[in-house]
Design a binder for these strands. Structure first.
Lengths: 128, 128
DNA sequence: CAGAATCCGTATCGATACTG
DNA sequence: CAGTATCGATACGGATTCTG
């Protein structure tokens, strides 16, 4: 009889786990931060993030939209304008995401110390 | 003059962001959950997670160890045994990680509803 | 048992070109 | 402006083999 601990989390097809993967990725957090203070248009987000490609931005926005985290609103004009904003659901995500981010800020010094200790143990020929 | 909002988060080379990426990935969360109730040996973790490959497990454990999240202890015996445990630093990470996970559990129904709405809008030829 | 090393297919990504 | 489509590089994951 297998000892089962944390059965829910274990399953790699656990819906919550899969959702976590879709929201905790690199750009999602940044986009949410950018939209935090108010709606932005596509290229405004792109300029704000500086480093994201148009492709990655489109993909991430689509995924966030699909999950109900951001809303997409087309402003009919010429040229066309598309405005993105954080939904109520998206706003509820802000607190836990922020908590996690703040952990990294607080504990980064400890982590960096651990890294130095670890890297020193890795023997390495100094000169090539 | 560029409007700068969230300057810290924006930079893709922000150390905290980079750390977040290393900790919020698929297997790290699962491994931490597995080690939550006590130390486990390499193959015990592997069996608990069921689905992870030896390569991925090794890589993830190394990264967690390097960041000071888990500790690796070699038990000299024959055959050799290696025990992994969560460090104090790693335990401090538990709360924010759990908060995030619980968000997904609570709001998953809303997310799934949003997905259905979104997917319905995607026009698609029914029969190929 | 706990890995290291290797091979290989694929998913992902950036850059580029094109469109309503 | 806000995308879509395409292509080549490459990073990544899985399966396999080997070892102290």
């Amino acid at each position: 009889m297998p000892s089962l601990r944390h059965r829910v989390l274990q399953a790699s097809d656990c819906p919550s786990r899969l959702l976590l993967d879709e929201l905790a990725d690199k750009w999602s957090v940044l986009i949410l931060a950018a939209l935090n203070e108010g709606p932005l248009r596509f290229n405004e987000i792109k300029r704000t993030l500086e480093g994201i490609t148009q492709k990655a931005l489109t993909q991430t926005l689509r995924r966030l939209e699909r999950n109900g985290i951001v809303a997409r609103r087309v402003v009919v004009a010429s040229p066309i304008a598309v405005e993105y904003s954080v939904t109520a659901l998206g706003k509820s995500l802000k607190k836990p995401l922020k908590a996690l981010y703040e952990w990294t800020v607080v504990y980064l010094p400890e982590v960096e110390e651990a890294r130095q200790t670890f890297d020193k143990k890795s023997v390495r020929t100094p000169a090539e």
